[in-house]
Computed example of a mutant assay.
Amino acid sequence: MNYQAAIFDMDGLLLDTERVCMQIFKEACEVQNLPFHEQVYLSIIGRNAAGIEAIFRKAYGDDLKRLHQEWRTRYNAVVQHQAIPVKDGVIELLEWLKSQGIPIAVATSTVNEIAKKKLELAGLSEYFDNLTTGCEVTHGKPDPEIYLLAAQRLSANPLQCLAFEDSNNGVRAAVAANMVTYQIPDLVEPCEEVRGFGHAIVTSLHDVLLHLKQI
């Protein structure tokens, strides 16, 4: 293998966060007597804070401030104190990449402080050489900036980087960064446009590991 780095999304890919987050958002809507727009919610997956706010602003208008405060308070109460379950195949793949001497990074839309806490509580921090987060870039996913920054920090050529994503927005970012991209769908299935990229779409990180071992 000639790959110079492996770069992972976090929520929905390493950690089974998306279901937890969506349920908390739904509860926040109920408490604030606001509708839960499922399709609107699913469209924010993979985006950074600025991208999420722009989408929710259109859906909730002046009610967004109180909804967001309710959601954030409830969400932080969970993720800052409880370990989010690790997705199947994560540890095995990370251990194997380490054994191959490949540097590993996280490129997540989540803000830095929360991302660090999630990885620490899940026991994953030790595997990563770098953490690049949504608050460190001007343009969030689907823009490739976060992946390019993560690769730069590892002194890696994007063309020789592996990227692992669950969401369509994340895949758009990784593909735009010209990385070898694997998609492991979580809450949202790949749309027709994304399927057309020709990247690998598999059911779990176990499948990714099997594939990489055959290269």
Rank of each mutant, 00 (worst) to 15 (best):
39 Q>G: 00
151 A>F: 09
147 Y>T: 07
209 L>N: 05
124 L>Y: 03
208 V>R: 03
180 V>Y: 13
141 K>N: 04
64 L>Q: 02
84 I>E: 02
94 L>F: 04
151 A>P: 00
150 A>V: 15
176 A>K: 11
133 T>E: 10
98 K>G: 11
60 Y>M: 09
6 A>F: 07
94 L>I: 06
37 H>A: 10
108 T>L: 11
51 G>P: 10
209 L>E: 11
41 Y>T: 10
195 R>K: 15
10 M>I: 04
83 A>W: 04
21 C>K: 11
66 R>N: 10
108 T>V: 13
112 N>L: 13
192 E>F: 01
2 N>D: 14
42 L>S: 10
143 D>S: 15
83 A>N: 11
99 S>D: 14
179 M>Q: 11
194 V>W: 08
16 D>K: 01
90 V>E: 04
174 A>G: 06
210 L>S: 11
119 L>S: 00
196 G>K: 01
142 P>H: 06
167 S>H: 02
83 A>V: 04
108 T>W: 05
29 C>S: 12
64 L>S: 00
188 V>W: 04
52 I>D: 07
189 E>T: 14
184 I>C: 09
170 G>W: 02
39 Q>K: 08
42 L>K: 14
31 V>H: 12
34 L>E: 08
156 A>I: 05
140 G>H: 05
111 V>F: 03
171 V>G: 02
191 C>L: 12
82 Q>F: 01
23 Q>A: 14
147 Y>D: 04
18 E>M: 05
141 K>D: 05
152 Q>R: 10
154 L>M: 02
202 V>L: 15
111 V>A: 00
153 R>C: 10
5 A>T: 07
125 S>C: 06
16 D>P: 05
20 V>G: 01
206 H>N: 15
86 V>F: 11
70 E>R: 14
193 E>C: 08
55 I>G: 00
127 Y>Q: 09
175 V>K: 09
190 P>G: 04
203 T>N: 15
30 E>W: 06
44 I>C: 06
74 R>C: 04
205 L>Y: 06
107 A>P: 13
45 I>E: 03
154 L>N: 04
200 A>P: 00
49 A>M: 13
206 H>L: 10
212 L>T: 05
91 I>D: 11
157 N>S: 15
145 E>K: 09
103 P>L: 06
91 I>M: 06
162 L>F: 03
10 M>G: 08
197 F>C: 10
50 A>F: 07
199 H>L: 12
109 S>P: 01
5 A>V: 08
72 R>F: 12
24 I>T: 13
194 V>G: 05
49 A>N: 13
160 Q>V: 01
88 D>M: 14
190 P>E: 08
120 E>Q: 13
169 N>Q: 11
159 L>Q: 13
43 S>F: 09
174 A>Y: 07
55 I>Y: 01
190 P>H: 11
